[in-house]
Simulated assay, not measured.
Amino acid sequence: MSKNSVFLLFFYAWCDVVLGVVLPGSSPGSIVLHNNGREKIYENVIGNKDGFGRSLISVNGASALHVSSRYDYYYTLVVEEGGVLVDCAYFDVRNSYNGVRASGGVCGLSKPLNSDYDEIAQVYSNEWRSSIFSFDTREVIESGEGRDFLLGRIGEVEIFDRYVSADALENALPQKIIRSRSGCFNFREAVGFPVLLDKNESGFLYLDVLRSEEPMLLQRMGEQDLKDIAVEKCP
C-alpha cells in the first residue's frame, strides 16, 4: 500500500468518527450542532474574546475550532450522545524562556464544549514549555552552530527538534527529525505535533504532521509509520 493510500485511509477514518454537522449559528459567537434532526446551540465559542480570534474550521474534513492571537491553538470536535466534545487540543506557540517553537497536542480529552474551551490548549502549552520544550539553547546562540534537541519517543523512534543555526532559533523555525535503529528522516519545513493521550504517562503515541493549512489536513503517524520512513542515513 502506498503512503498516499495510508493517508487517505486515515483521512476518511477520522471523518467517519464525527456524527452530525456543526455550523455557525444565527446569533453572534454561536455554533449549532445538527444531529439526527435535532439542533443544539453553543453560545460564545467563535468570534473575538479577550483579544483572541476564534473561528470554526475543518481538520481532515471534520468540524474544528481555531483560536489565534500571537500563537495558534486548534481543537478537533466529535459528537457523542447528541453533544459536541473536544477530542484533541493542539498548540503552536513560542517558549519565552529559551526562544524555541513549541508545538504539540493532547487527544482523548472528551471534554464537553463550552465557552471556556479555549483555555484547554493554553494550559497544556504552558506545561510543555516548562518541561518538554525547556532545553538549554545557549550553545546554539553562542556558537551559531546547529543542534538537535530530544523531545521524546514514540516507541523506539526518537523525535528531535533541529535548529540548524542561531538564525533558525531566533526565528523559531526548527526541523522535525525522527531517528530509529534503521536511520533518520527529516520532515524539514513541515510542522509536527507530538501527541499524548490525556492522562497517559507512557509518552508520545503519534506524530501528527501538518500537510495543509487551508483546509487543515493532519497526517497521523504512529511508531510503525515513522519506522517505515526513518531509513535515511543520519548525519
Rank of each mutant, 00 (worst) to 15 (best):
S125F: 00
L109N: 06
D118F: 08
R129E: 01
S131A: 11
S115E: 06
C107Q: 03
I132Q: 04
K111A: 15
K111E: 15
Q122M: 02
C107L: 03
I141H: 13
T137C: 13
A121H: 04
A121K: 04
L109V: 05
N114D: 13
V140G: 06
S130L: 14
D118P: 14
D136G: 14
D116E: 11
C107N: 03
C107W: 02
I120V: 08
T137M: 13
L113C: 09
W128N: 07
N126L: 07
I120S: 03
F133I: 15
F135W: 10
N114M: 08
I141T: 15
S131Q: 11
R138W: 15
I120W: 01
V123K: 04
E139P: 15
Q122C: 03
S125R: 00
I132G: 05
S125I: 00
I141P: 15
N114H: 10
I132A: 05
G108W: 00
G108I: 01
Q122R: 02
Y117Q: 09
Y117S: 11
S110L: 10
V140F: 05
S125Y: 00
F133K: 12
F135C: 11
A121E: 06
I141Q: 14
V140E: 04
E119Y: 02
L109S: 05
R138E: 15
N114Y: 09
L109D: 05
R138V: 15
N114C: 11
V140A: 03
S110F: 09
P112F: 09
N126K: 07
P112W: 07
I120T: 06
C107S: 05
V123L: 09
G108T: 01
P112C: 10
E139C: 13
S134W: 08
R129N: 03
N126E: 07
I141S: 14
V140M: 05
W128H: 06
A121D: 05
I141W: 14
L109Q: 05
L109P: 09
T137S: 13
V123I: 13
W128Y: 08
V123P: 10
S125W: 00
D136C: 11
F133C: 13
D118G: 12
W128T: 06
P112G: 13
S110K: 11
W128D: 06
E119F: 02
E127S: 01
Q122N: 04
I132F: 04
W128I: 05
G108K: 01
Q122S: 03
L109R: 03
V140H: 05
I120A: 03
E127L: 00
D136F: 13
V123R: 02
Q122I: 00
N126Y: 06
E119A: 06
E127D: 04
S134E: 09
N114A: 12
A121Q: 04
S130N: 14
S125K: 00
E127Q: 01
N126W: 05
Y124V: 02
A121N: 07
